[in-house]
């Protein structure tokens, strides 16, 4: 893998919902092993942009480029096939199904009954889910538990396990720590650091600046559906980022932005 080619790049993304413009000419790029924090006020367009990257919405205008190749996603399946996974804010888990079934939902291992009929290989799914959870150092009583029986942190872990189960290159996380207890927050953030060491790119949306400053390499701010500012973490600070979220750009920040371009 070329480390100078971005894993994913969005160029000039526009998105309209009827008469409402959610995104206008937004750019984003993510390098291998990079953790990019995306901040912005409610309605700034963060979630919409992520859903476009994950294939849930088509952009109204603009281009997505995955590892140098222009792509067009018509469903989340297309994005997943390209190694782009998303952990949704509401987790998008089916509470009535087992942990392993959620991890492998839509990508179940099958075996052939009598050599013809494909059937779900429940044992293989459970075994591999178990191994995968152990790799991520996530503890659950049993992968046979239904997701509705789990705590908030465990559910979050299952959602992340699903995103990482199949060789993902980019993992997008929308507010992964919003619903967690403090102890669990640290676990999730350490997990993100772990992913980075494997060359996976992570895009993290968070309202918690603690999270952003603990784990990110770079932070970008959206404001009213537009790129507002961005900087490597070492060249900005909390107050400045808070300013970006509110729509205030300090002199230094604009200078940095010019610098980047």
């Amino acid at each position: 893998m070329n480390t100078t080619t971005p894993l994913i790049e969005a160029r000039g993304i526009n998105k309209h919902f009827g008469a409402v413009t959610a995104l206008e000419d937004v750019n984003l790029s993510l390098m291998p092993g990079e953790v990019l924090g995306v901040v912005g006020d409610n309605g700034a367009g963060k979630s919409t942009l992520m859903k476009i990257l994950a294939g849930l919405y088509p952009p109204s205008r603009g281009q997505l480029i995955v590892q140098g190749q222009p792509v067009h996603f018509s469903s989340p399946k297309d994005a997943r096939d390209r190694g782009i996974e998303m952990v949704y804010q509401d987790l998008a888990l089916a509470g009535n199904l087992r942990i392993d079934e959620n991890i492998f939902l839509g990508r179940e291992h099958t075996r052939r009954l009598l050599g013809v009929v494909p059937i779900v290989h429940h044992q293989a799914n459970m075994k591999q889910a178990q191994e995968h959870l152990e790799r991520l150092r996530i503890q659950v009583k049993s992968v046979g538990q239904r997701v509705e029986e789990l705590s908030g942190g465990q559910r979050q872990a299952v959602a992340i396990a699903r995103a990482t189960a199949f060789d993902a290159k980019v993992i997008i996380m929308d507010e992964p720590t919003a619903a967690l207890a403090i102890k669990e927050v640290r676990k999730v953030l350490d997990l993100i650091k772990d992913l980075r060491t494997h060359g996976i790119g992570v895009i993290l949306i968070s309202h918690r600046l603690d999270d952003i400053f603990y784990v990110c390499d770079r932070v970008m701010a959206l404001f009213h559906g537009r790129n507002f500012a961005e900087a490597p973490l070492g060249r900005t600070d909390r107050n400045e980022v808070i300013g970006w979220i509110m729509g205030n750009r300090s002199q230094t920040a604009s200078a940095q932005e010019l610098d980047l371009n």
Partner: peptide, 25 residues
């Protein structure tokens, strides 16, 4: 319902249609 992929997807849709959709079902 128990062994076919589609059968499991039917339960998933009942549990959380959005989860099913974003899982590529």
């Amino acid at each position: 319902l128990h062994y076919a992929r589609t059968g499991r997807h039917i339960y998933a849709i009942g549990g959380n249609p959005q989860a099913a959709r974003v899982s590529g079902i």
